[in-house]
C-alpha cells in the first residue's frame, strides 16, 4: 500500500516537473509544434481536457460510433482500440481514457475524404472508461466503454 502511494506521488511529481520544463521553454521543439494542443493534452482530468481541446465538455452519446476495445486488457501497455463511425462530415476523432494521468490519448484530424475509422494501440494505467469523442458539425458525439486492466502500462 505504502509503495503504491509513493509511486503515485512520484508520478505526479514527474508530471509537474515536465510541466515546469516545458513552461520555461527548455524544450524548444515545442515552438515548432504550435499545433500540438499542450493545454488539452496535459490536462489532468477529462473534463478540463475536453474543454481545452474543443471549448466544450458536453458530449452527446451516440449509437453511430463503434468503439472496439477489449473488455479485459491483460497488458495495459498495449490496448488495441478501434473507432468506427458513420456520422457524416467528421472533423476529428479523439480517444479519452478517464483515469490516465493525461486523459486525452490522441486526436485524429480527418481530411474531407478520410473515413470515420481509426485503429491504434494505447497505454492504460488502470481500469478505466475509454471514450471515443467524434467532432462533427461543431458537435461532440461520444461512446464509452469500460476496459479492465490487469497490469498497468504507464508508470514503472
Amino acid at each position: 500500500m505504502n509503495e503504491k502511494r509513493r509511486i503515485l506521488l512520484k508520478n505526479s511529481f514527474a508530471a509537474g516537473a515536465t510541466g515546469i520544463v516545458i513552461g520555461t521553454g527548455l524544450l524548444t521543439p515545442k515552438a515548432a509544434l504550435a499545433a500540438w494542443p499542450k493545454a488539452a493534452f496535459e490536462a489532468k482530468d477529462s473534463k478540463s481536457a475536453l474543454q481545452a481541446e474543443f471549448g466544450s465538455s458536453t458530449l452527446i452519446p451516440s449509437n453511430d460510433i463503434k468503439l472496439k476495445a477489449p473488455d479485459i486488457a491483460e497488458n495495459g501497455a498495449v490496448v488495441p482500440v478501434t473507432i468506427t463511425s458513420n456520422i457524416p462530415d467528421i472533423d476529428s476523432i479523439s480517444i479519452v481514457v478517464q483515469h490516465n494521468t493525461w486523459p486525452i490519448a490522441a486526436t485524429f484530424k480527418l481530411g474531407p475524404t478520410t473515413d470515420g475509422y481509426i485503429s491504434t494501440r494505447i497505454k492504460m494505467g488502470k481500469t478505466s472508461d475509454v471514450t471515443a469523442v467524434v467532432k462533427a458539425g461543431g458537435k461532440l458525439y461520444s461512446t464509452t466503454k469500460n476496459v479492465k486492466v490487469t497490469i498497468g502500462g504507464c508508470g514503472g
Binding site: A35, W36, P37, F41, A77, V78, V79, I95, V97, N100, W102, I104, A105, A106, T107, F108, K109, L110, G111, T113, T114, D115, Y117, I118, S119, T120, R121, I122, K123, G153
Partner: peptide, 21 residues
C-alpha cells in the same frame, strides 16, 4: 488526409490504421 496529434498515451512502437476515399 490525416493529422494525428498524439499524447504519450499511445503505445510503444505505435500502430495506426485508417482509410480514405
Amino acid at each position: 488526409v490525416l493529422d494525428a496529434e498524439w499524447n504519450a498515451t499511445i503505445s510503444k512502437n505505435p500502430f495506426l490504421s485508417f482509410s480514405f476515399n
